[in-house]
Design a protein around this nucleic acid. Structure first.
Lengths: 244, 244
DNA sequence: GAATTTCTTTGATTTGCATCAACATATCTG
DNA sequence: CAGATATGTTGATGCAAATCAAAGAAATTC
């Protein structure tokens, strides 16, 4: 890689589902043309409509995927390390359907699309890993669509909080992990309505102070949320859509 | 295949993006364990939550993908021949996220998941085709999410009609292709509201009589719909979500 | 640390959409 | 073909959620 990564970083990247099956030779082939870059917060990494040149890997920080139409904007997902994004556009060599921006100071690896294609053709294990990853992203997005079409905004919020709690190790209290206005957009609602929805969840034992969430009795909230693993995944922060 | 297909059918299946790159030997390997079946209308082929055993190929008729939660139901896509479905679940050997039912009398090929996996491992061309297909499905679904989150129901209807018109070869008049209540569900609205929305489009030169749609001047409607190829695909009938 | 900006909350109002109810039309069935 | 059933339309009403407006709380900036 053009700029060296730390051992811990390399290890983390290699341990991603997408790369863990690669032998060292193929992995370095993939990483040889790649370069790491540090970005400040609120930098637009990708603009929807542009054509895809790189597979992105988020190493640290956080990244928002969003989309615009006719003057409106919506959050599609908020990514945490370590995850890849824009895999589908890379594979199809197609235009990006989403834009991406850093939310915090972030460290990102850019792998040239040609290299991904080359290793894909060379290495059956890698091609299987790509398919598995894509299928996973596809399924996560189907879940997001079901979430939007079958649930009210209050139900979406309730389920999001339960997923986030699980992700945080089932602690009674945990951090929200993103600004409320982005959470609102992610859940398909306005910030004003999110604020009111949070109040509505008070009778279910939910208290949110700043970015700190406390759920007194999850089973109480589950009565409202009715989570199911056909909609709700433990990999929760991308409440509305995942990262292909 | 257990039940023989006609030459025209075989040809159509082979010409699918997913299979067109396979040599004859691999294709027959894939089809050896497969069987064709004819179903009457309104037969539930797949139930969400069940585990995936077969890749499905719709040869004739039409199939609705739908999902349920908490007593509610929504249409996720309506498929026309010739298309594959449930590819993502097949690849992951995971539980179906959607149910499927025939809408008309339909002819469907069922390819055992093991065989798909075997040929995938054997044939790099096939594995590339699977990835391309999956990436396409993923992207179509991202578009569906953007459609839902960024547009009002009237705008979704307007865009659907323009896409359907394009699919029908840009004729002034074409068939809707599915019941209005299903179209409504696909677009994320109620039948009552669809009915009213159609009336609202009258000033834009849209007339729908039964299942026959007439659009006097598409550019007029486009002024409202503002279609973009970052949301709207010509492969239109799955207005809300595609077929992985 | 004061000033500025951004984010969040609260209340009042409007709008979009769902629901309910009734009727009309189309489709199925014996 | 008649009766039954399902689908589609229309109007009245209610509710969920967006918008508008303003104030309070955080986070930034100088």
């Amino acid at each position: 890689m053009v700029i060296h990564t730390s051992d811990r970083e390399s290890e983390e990247i290699r341990s991603l589902d997408l790369f863990s099956g690669l032998d060292d030779a193929r992995f370095s082939l993939l990483m040889r043309g790649a370069y790491v870059q540090n970005f400040p917060p609120m930098i637009e990494l990708i603009t929807e409509g542009d054509t895809s040149d790189f597979l992105h890997v988020l190493v640290s920080g956080s990244v928002e995927l969003f989309a615009n139409w006719n003057g409106r904007e919506t959050t599609m997902a908020v990514l945490q390390p370590t995850s890849t994004f824009i895999l589908a556009a890379t594979i199809r060599r197609a235009r990006y359907l989403m834009s991406a921006r850093t939310l915090e100071k972030s460290r990102i690896i850019l792998v040239p699309s040609e290299d991904v294609g080359a290793v894909f053709d060379l290495d059956p294990d890698f091609s299987r890993a790509v398919v598995t990853e894509l299928a996973q992203c596809y399924r996560a997005n189907i879940m997001a669509t079901k979430n939007l079409k079958l649930r009210s905004s209050l139900e979406r919020l309730a389920n999001h909080l339960l997923s986030a709690r699980k992700l945080a190790g089932n602690l009674e209290s945990f951090e929200l992990g993103l600004e409320k206005r982005r959470l609102a957009s992610n859940l398909g609602m306005t910030p004003e309505n999110l604020s009111r929805a949070i109040r509505q969840l008070k009778p279910y034992g939910v208290a949110i102070d700043g970015s700190r969430v406390t759920i007194a009795d999850p089973s109480d909230l589950e009565g409202l949320a009715k989570p199911t693993d056909l909609i709700d995944t433990p990999c929760a922060l991308q409440a509305s859509a995942p990262a292909g």
